[in-house]
Amino acid sequence: MTDQTQHAPLAPARRARVLAALHRDGVVRISELIDSLGVAPVTLRRDLAEMEREGLLRRVHGGAVTVQAPPARRGAPAQGAAPAAGDDGGAIAVLVPSLNYYWPGVVRGMEAEAQRLGLKLLLRGASYELQDERPVLERLITSEDIRGLIVAPNTDTAHTADVVQWLADAPIPAVLVERDAISLPGHEPMESVTTDHALGAGLAARHLAATGHREVGLVLSRFSPTSRKIAAGWHAACTELGLNNPPELDAFLPDRASPEFSDTVNATLDAALAKGVTGLLVHSDPEAMAVIDLALIRGISVPGDLSVVAYDDEVAQLFSPALTAVSPPRHAVGEAAVDLLAKRLANPDRPVHRVALSPELNVRASTAAAPGA
Rank of each mutant, 00 (worst) to 15 (best):
Q4D: 09
T5K: 15
A8I: 07
A13L: 13
R14A: 07
R17S: 15
R29P: 00
S31C: 08
S31Q: 09
E32F: 04
L33Y: 00
I34T: 05
S36C: 11
P41L: 13
V42H: 15
T43A: 08
R45L: 14
E50W: 06
E54G: 14
G55H: 03
L57V: 08
R59Y: 06
V60I: 09
V67N: 09
P70M: 09
P71F: 10
G75P: 10
G75W: 11
P83Q: 04
A84Y: 05
A84S: 06
D87A: 09
G90E: 02
V96C: 13
S98C: 11
W103H: 04
P104H: 10
G105H: 10
R108F: 12
R108I: 09
G109W: 09
Q115M: 12
K120Y: 14
L122D: 02
G125D: 15
Y128H: 11
Y128D: 13
D132M: 07
R134P: 01
P135D: 01
E138R: 10
R139A: 08
R139N: 11
T142W: 02
G148T: 13
L149P: 05
L149G: 14
A152I: 10
N154L: 12
D156V: 15
A161G: 12
Q165S: 11
W166F: 15
W166Q: 06
E178M: 00
P189E: 02
S192C: 07
D196T: 06
A198M: 00
G200R: 05
L203V: 08
L203K: 04
A204M: 08
R206P: 03
H207K: 05
T211R: 13
E215A: 12
L218N: 06
V219F: 12
S224A: 11
S227Y: 00
S227T: 03
K229T: 07
A231E: 15
A231S: 14
G233M: 03
C238G: 01
N244K: 12
N244F: 05
D250N: 12
L253K: 03
L253C: 11
D255Y: 06
E260S: 07
D263A: 01
V265T: 03
A267Q: 13
T268P: 03
L269Y: 02
D270F: 00
A271L: 00
A271F: 02
L273S: 09
K275F: 02
K275W: 07
L281C: 10
V282H: 01
H283T: 03
P286G: 09
L294C: 04
A295N: 01
L296I: 10
I300S: 01
V302F: 08
A310R: 08
D313T: 10
L318I: 03
L318Y: 12
F319D: 07
S320D: 13
T324G: 07
V326D: 02
R330Q: 13
R330K: 15
R330I: 10
G334S: 08
G334W: 11
E335Q: 15
L345F: 09
N347P: 02
D349E: 08
P351A: 00
P351W: 02
A356K: 09
S358P: 13
E360T: 15
E360Q: 11
L361I: 12
L361R: 08
N362E: 14
R364G: 01
A368D: 14
P371L: 08
P371C: 07
